[in-house]
């Protein structure tokens, strides 16, 4: 691990200023993803601003009947909150489908949104990777791509966003609230938060340098039945090959987003409008124009089957 200096911030805007003013500085909250990457020198921050003391660890009601989740609320605390379990069960289900108990105790709401890809070539510093080292090329294209994305990819990068929680947040139309180094605040709809790789795979999100996530806001509850169907190589503690977050209403309409398929949680309005017609209709539209490799083409029928399972459970 490269040497770095360390400070604990006491105010969100000051934390943002500190990261913005020091080249190579990064925020650290739970650290479960960042420290893993620092050990193999995929991440090499020169300064860490620890945000754990900030007053961002509460879940509060909003005036329009939703909830405002502090960025430091742990995955464990968020999943266990009675309001989340009752009114936003898709979120609890997505969180408890991810990682392990130990990791969820440390992982934060803000950090989970910033989780970096698990592409094996991103992790292997002996291989070219445009995301890790811009301009070096992509070893995944033409390489071992079983876990990688089938849609939203570019000729620079075919990595997926690996997380579960943000797939549920996408279905719930959550909003990410931030503070910038100049103290200005902004609200970013979750749909716009993660980027498609395009020519800049090194940039995972639309956050600007030093911009700090402070809250994630959920609109008022949707009702309906909530599902998070995750298909993976083992029954627990593995990243999704394919996941489906869905809220299904009694009349068969609803919302659906997919994980493990793209650089971001994948939700297509025209596709979910086809829910009453069945899973195949939805996925045909959602993954129109997909460019799978021979290794990951299985994800397309798997997504249809995972959604079919959700629809069957909703009808049962």
């Amino acid at each position: 691990m490269k040497a770095f200096t360390y400070e604990r911030a006491s105010d969100p805007a000051a934390a943002a200023r500190s990261v913005a003013s020091k080249p190579g500085a990064k925020f650290i909250a739970g650290g479960t993803n960042l420290l893993d990457l620092m050990k193999i020198e995929v991440e090499t921050p020169t300064h860490l601003v620890d945000v754990q003391d900030l007053d961002l660890d509460k879940i509060e009601k909003t005036s329009d009947g939703g909830l405002r989740i502090g960025a430091l609320v742990s995955n464990t605390a968020l999943a266990a909150d009675q309001r989340i379990r009752r009114d936003y069960a898709v979120l609890t289900r997505a969180i408890v489908a991810g990682a392990s108990g130990q990791l969820r105790n440390k992982a934060s709401t803000g950090g989970n949104l910033l989780q970096r890809t698990r592409c094996p070539y991103f992790y292997d510093t002996n291989m070219p990777c445009n995301k890790r080292k811009p301009g070096t090329g992509c070893a995944a294209i033409g390489g071992y791509s079983r876990q990688l994305a089938v849609i939203g990819v570019s000729d620079k990068c075919i990595a997926t966003f690996p997380g579960d929680m943000p797939v549920a947040l996408r279905v719930l139309d959550a909003v990410v609230e931030t503070v910038k180094p100049d103290g200005q605040r902004r609200s970013i709809p979750i749909a716009d938060f993660h980027r498609l790789w395009g020519d800049k795979p090194e940039q995972d999100t639309v956050l600007e340098p030093g911009e700090l996530i402070t809250h994630v806001t959920l609109p008022r509850p949707l009702g309906g039945q909530h599902f998070y169907e995750k298909v993976r190589d083992r029954a627990s503690y593995a990243f999704a090959l394919v996941s489906v977050a869905a809220v299904i209403q009694p009349d068969g309409t609803g919302r659906v987003a997919f994980g493990g398929m793209a650089p971001k949680p994948w939700r297509v309005a025209e596709a979910e409008a086809l829910l009453p017609q069945g899973a195949a209709a939805v996925t045909a539209r959602a993954f129109q124009g997909a460019t799978p490799t021979k290794d990951n083409a299985f994800k397309l029928p798997l997504a249809t089957r995972a959604l079919a399972s959700v629809i069957a459970q909703a009808k049962a």
Binding site: Y6, G31, L35, D36, S100, L103, K106
Partner: peptide
């Protein structure tokens, strides 16, 4: 040493964590 095996699990303020994925300075 990467949070995948759990051999380093300890309790911090009563909660279990992977002690390999946490810096000592974060535990003042």
């Amino acid at each position: 040493d990467h949070g995948q095996c759990g051999a380093c699990t300890v309790l911090v303020n009563g909660q279990r964590i992977n002690s390999c994925l946490s810096l000592a300075v974060m535990h003042e």
